Computed example of a mutant assay.
Amino acid sequence: MKKYLFLMIALVGLAGFSGCRKTEVVETAIMPNRTFIYTVNSNEWQYSEDGLTLLHDINLPELERYYLEQGNVSVAISIDNEQSYEILPATYNGYAYSVNYTVGFVTLKVEDPIIDPEIELQPPGTSIVVKIVLSDSDYID
């Protein structure tokens, strides 16, 4: 009798445990990447004080201190109506394109890559499409 009682308790316990599922819920505060597209026309560039660099500032309030300290900011440009992109920094058509960013602003820079004083720097002749991607990141110190 004890043998059957133990067997019944074992079967009931087995049936009870087989109905349980372990569910793991992972919450994350990381937001999806955010992409911003801007068009910079050839008349919107400014010369630096020394005249050796062309600059264009993009006001981007979404670029918060978090992205300076922990996240990621990627910038690419398209000269061919978004058929392709060059990730900055890059040299294109004899000009060196680079980027600098701070809270709230992205600054595009165009320079002569060999800094030849005989070459007069001219704004790009066509509009440039700028893609800025803000990415969250899990910073590990």
Rank of each mutant, 00 (worst) to 15 (best):
A10P: 03
L60E: 06
V12R: 01
R65V: 14
G94C: 07
D116H: 04
I128Y: 03
Y92A: 08
E62Q: 15
P89M: 01
I87Q: 09
D50Y: 05
P61D: 08
S137G: 02
S135W: 01
V110S: 08
K3D: 14
S18N: 10
L88K: 04
E69P: 01
D112A: 05
L11W: 02
Y97G: 07
A76Y: 05
N81S: 12
E120F: 07
S137Q: 09
K109Q: 15
P32N: 15
V106A: 06
L52G: 12
T39G: 00
Y47Q: 07
K3W: 00
I79D: 09
D136W: 10
L11K: 01
V130A: 09
Y97C: 05
D112Y: 01
F105C: 00
P32G: 13
L88V: 08
V73S: 05
L14A: 15
E82A: 11
S84P: 01
I87S: 12
R34V: 11
I119L: 11
F36C: 03
E49N: 13
S127T: 07
E62Y: 05
E86T: 01
E82M: 14
V12W: 05
E69A: 09
D138W: 01
G13D: 03
V106S: 04
D80A: 08
K2Y: 03
L60W: 10
Y66M: 05
Y95R: 12
S74N: 13
V40I: 14
S48K: 03
G19H: 02
L63F: 09
N93C: 04
G94L: 06
T126N: 09
E24M: 11
G71Y: 04
I115V: 13
Y139V: 08
P113L: 00
M8C: 14
N93D: 15
N43Q: 08
G13P: 02
S42V: 02
D57W: 02
P61T: 10
G19I: 15
F6G: 08
T107A: 02
Y38I: 07
T39L: 02
I119P: 09
P117W: 00
L134W: 06
I128R: 00
A96K: 10
G51T: 03
D57R: 05
R21W: 01
C20H: 03
S135N: 03
I128N: 04
E82I: 08
I79K: 04
S78L: 04
A90E: 10
T28E: 03
N72D: 13
